[in-house]
Design a protein around this nucleic acid. Structure first.
Lengths: 311, 311
DNA sequence: TCAAAAGTGTTATCCTTACACCCATGT
DNA sequence: ACATGGGTGTAAGGATAACACTTTTGA
């Protein structure tokens, strides 16, 4: 393997692409360029000591505030992006011409913005992922999908599994799978080059190339991660109320949470501690302020073992 | 961001690197080259339609049997590999000269091997990760680490959290963190270029460059994944007994599992079904043979919700 | 006084864990 | 007979989910 390294290697450009997330007013937002049409991306430049350092460097240059958390999402070959396995193989297209390495970064919304950049709610791109208030959106999408399925059993099973029944179970982590199903059904405009796009695509803002797909990957990753790692706190101010914490989680999950049980959930994890202070001035009873206990990062491995070990 | 794309882009080589895992006789093995010193890696070549297709292509060319499961692990810049954040910044080294994209692949051990390649137990590289039989290995490592810590509280806390106390809790997923701690403590030979290596490194076979680090990443990922996705079955024959399933899981987790509870664990997940047949000829009562229920792949999203939803 | 939000209690149910025990086969 | 592995029962303890309810503030 290593022996034939010199045989026709691909020498390609490398691009770093960021999904920078903040939650403001119960809205999960991503930093975009080109009026919300694209995710910010920058090339790997000379002087970057590592990939992550390169990403941090130009995100901070751009937003003028530090990002607290960065995590690699996925690496694509340019050509393979956006549903490569579905498209017909075209041997003439040859090797990939570029590599894109995508990242999830967490921060808080910056006050100052460059004219070309803006924060957008991620539910502008994936309105069906927000179940917090029920409009008839999902019912309509289900209808369109069922029409596309045209009684094929396997398609109907996937629709049921991903988009649930009327009041049935909903797995909020399957963001990418749902997007891909809509793509396959020709219900998103991006599918235009490879599939027949329906006359009336599903609501939701289109993005450049596969940027919406990358965003879906980021949402899915974050929705999964908040359950077993204390990453929400990267999105919150130093002090916060339990309701603010809950609303941030709800914003990410796209679902309402049960308040009393949510508080016990947080309490039981021992992730936060009271600061001794409380809010005042707003409607209702003042809320105690909490802070994240940073010590938990060293204390525990944060993994529910789940396997029935011996002794 | 996109505007300055043309300014000094890095044009680099791209290498695909594979951790190909099989479990044989209760031993988790990885495919290696150069007498176990390196992981197989190949360049991204013209004609590869996607990164994953490229990886599959040359792994199958090499091993002559199909790989059933592939998953991307992580992408590194060559320069940033093996503890980049610890090493002193050297601005003269400039841009990364190569990108390595690592993958985890699951298969079963092939009968025929090329002379240069061999399957090795991953516990040759990480003997401290196998808790199935207790030799005094861990106690010795703890001693060496504590000596290195020289009463620094933060170091002692990390040691306790990662390597546990004598009979204390052990999180089998923290493979990478444990390796990195040993690296930082100079107890692995690979650290030689950046840190003082102790006179007596810890047991465990060294590898080329950061290959052992990539292997640690793969083990950690697999240990985490078997708990919530049905990937073990990629490592088993079509039909298997529950003990074989258990022993495969134990091999991966590096820990013994409680038999009666393990069976209920499997049963409760409804992942397998009886084939109606049974083993015979070996010691003890014949065991029923089971097969994986492939339908579960579409049925469920496989994510324990964990969040206290409303309604 | 009322609305709004904070916060507590209680129960049924399920899952996890640990322990004990019986079953079927080969030697 | 007994060793070996297969397989079942059950009870304690903890986590979850759904319910109702009290408390404290601003308007």
């Amino acid at each position: 393997m290593r022996e034939n390294r010199t045989m026709g290697n691909a020498v390609v450009e490398t691009e770093l692409i960021a999904v920078l997330v903040a939650v403001t007013d119960g809205d999960p937002r991503v930093l975009t360029i080109e009026s919300g049409y694209a995710l910010p991306s920058g090339p790997l430049e000379p002087g970057h000591r590592s990939l992550q350092a390169g990403l941090r460097a130009w995100v901070e240059r751009q937003t003028h505030h530090p990002i607290f958390y960065v995590e690699q999402l996925y690496t694509f070959a340019d050509q393979a992006r956006a549903g490569a396995d579905q498209q017909a193989a075209d041997p003439q297209r040859g090797v990939a011409r570029g590599i894109s390495i995508s990242y999830l970064a967490l921060s808080r919304e910056a006050a100052a913005e460059y004219p070309s950049t803006s924060w957008r709610s991620w539910y502008h791109y994936f309105p069906w992922e927000d179940l917090r208030e029920n409009n008839g959106l999902l019912a309509g999408i289900r209808q369109q999908l069922i029409a596309w399925a045209s009684h094929e059993e396997s398609r109907l099973a996937r629709i049921a599994g991903l988009f649930g029944a009327e009041g049935g179970p909903w797995n909020e982590e399957l963001v990418l799978q749902r997007y891909e199903l809509l793509w396959e059904a020709g219900l998103v405009p991006e599918a235009t080059r490879y599939a027949l796009v329906a006359a009336t695509p599903v609501p939701g803002k289109e993005m450049l190339h596969d940027h919406r797909r990358i965003l879906a990957t980021a949402i899915a990753r974050l929705r999964a991660k908040i359950k077993y790692r204390p990453v929400v706190f990267e999105l919150l101010p130093h002090e916060f109320t339990l309701l603010e914490l809950q609303q941030t989680m709800e914003a990410l999950a796209g679902q309402g949470l049960h308040k009393p049980n949510f508080r016990r959930f947080i309490e039981q994890q021992e992730l936060v501690e009271e600061t001794g202070r409380a809010t005042s001035g707003q409607a209702g009873r003042p809320a105690k302020l909490f802070r994240f206990r940073p010590s938990v990062l060293e204390e525990r491995g944060f993994t529910g073992s789940k396997l029935p070990l011996v002794r």
